[in-house]
């Protein structure tokens, strides 16, 4: 396995290196540049030139690239001149906020879908089932920017029971009761479509299991219906559920970008939008490289697992 991993490693590193060149080069092709953004509309060209020199943008592109790559490889992600602060701190802070939001949404989606599915699976076809289907379809179909704005309007402005946006002033750990209130609306907004999709899959899976012969036998043997559902049908339905959950988790990370904007949640999505808007090359470069690195690691892990499961791949080096 170790030899297989060693064989795969060079291509992964090559992908990272090629990506770094592409990211660096493509960003320079985007119209606008950090020096003029920093200088502002009232700045004369000589002021722009001074800022360009200060940022090192007047050096040849090759030199800029080599310096940047060398710094990144030595763990120095650099400083953001247009957003401010160390890039490592910006990314760390954004990553924590995004992960907290996504984890909370995932938790709500799982809890919501489990409870709803366990109740719904016992509902017979009829008006109540139709109503639940309609509500579920609505939750699945409503875009997050609609549910987000509706939640803010009702819970934040009309009822004033939850904050309309932002992160807890004292952080997540110090005042957990306050932190939960800041998290609730964005997490619900993000979780709603995922929860609806999971509910749909799990309910159908549970119904299939409940109709299976082994359940009929168990019921005939006097097993209580609640035990049948929780102890027999649910474990059998979980593999399908987990597959869908895995797909939804990735979707939640992507969906967080929009929710961050609606609720002023300073996560990675907000950071990326801000950096692109200001042409903050070093920050955009790091964020893009980070996403490529995550992809490469996931791909590498998948390949390794695949090789572990299938000896033909391991021996032949095929993927």
């Amino acid at each position: 396995m170790g030899r297989y991993l060693l064989r795969r490693l060079p291509s992964a590193l090559l992908v990272l290196l090629a990506s770094s060149v592409a990211i660096f080069g493509l960003l320079r092709l985007v119209p606008g540049d950090p020096a003029t953004t920093l200088a502002g509309a009232d700045a004369p060209p000589e002021a722009v030139a001074a800022i360009r020199a200060e940022l090192g943008l007047d050096r040849p592109l090759g030199t800029q690239y080599v310096t940047w790559l060398g710094d990144v490889l030595t763990g120095d992600l650099g400083r953001s001149y247009l957003i401010g602060g160390q890039i490592a701190d910006l990314v760390r802070s954004g990553l924590v906020n995004t992960l907290v939001l996504t984890a909370a949404a995932l938790l709500l989606a799982v809890a919501g879908s489990l409870v709803t599915s366990l109740l719904w699976a016992r509902v017979e076809r009829g008006p109540l089932d139709s109503l639940l289907t309609s509500v579920n379809t609505l939750a699945l179909a409503l875009p997050t920017f609609v549910t987000g704005v509706a939640l803010v309007l009702v819970l934040g402005i009309v009822l004033r029971v939850l904050p309309t946006g932002g992160t807890p002033p004292a952080g997540f750990a110090r005042d957990p009761d306050i932190a939960v209130q800041y998290l609730l609306m964005p997490a619900v907004c993000l979780a709603l479509p995922a929860s609806a999709a999971l509910t749909r899959f799990l309910t159908e899976a549970l119904r299939t299991e409940l109709a299976a012969p082994y359940v009929t036998t168990a019921r005939a043997a006097g097993v209580r219906s609640s035990r049948l559902l929780v102890a027999h049908a649910l474990p059998a339905a979980l593999p399908t559920y987990l597959t869908v959950l895995g797909l939804q988790a990735g979707g939640l990370l992507g969906g967080a970008v929009l929710v961050e904007a609606i609720f002023s949640w300073p996560g990675l999505g907000q950071l990326a939008a801000q950096a692109i808007d200001r042409r903050d090359y070093p920050v955009v470069q790091v964020l893009l490289l980070l996403s490529v690195a995550v992809f490469v690691v996931v791909q590498l892990t998948t390949d390794v697992v695949h090789a572990w499961l299938d000896p033909r791949v391991r021996i032949g080096g095929l993927t």
Partner: peptide
């Protein structure tokens, strides 16, 4: 003074209207 950076104008309005 606690100043929040709210980069979306709609969210800024919501924060004011909600009393935040």
């Amino acid at each position: 003074v606690d100043v929040r950076v709210i980069t979306d104008a709609t969210s800024l309005l919501s924060s004011l209207r909600s009393g935040q």
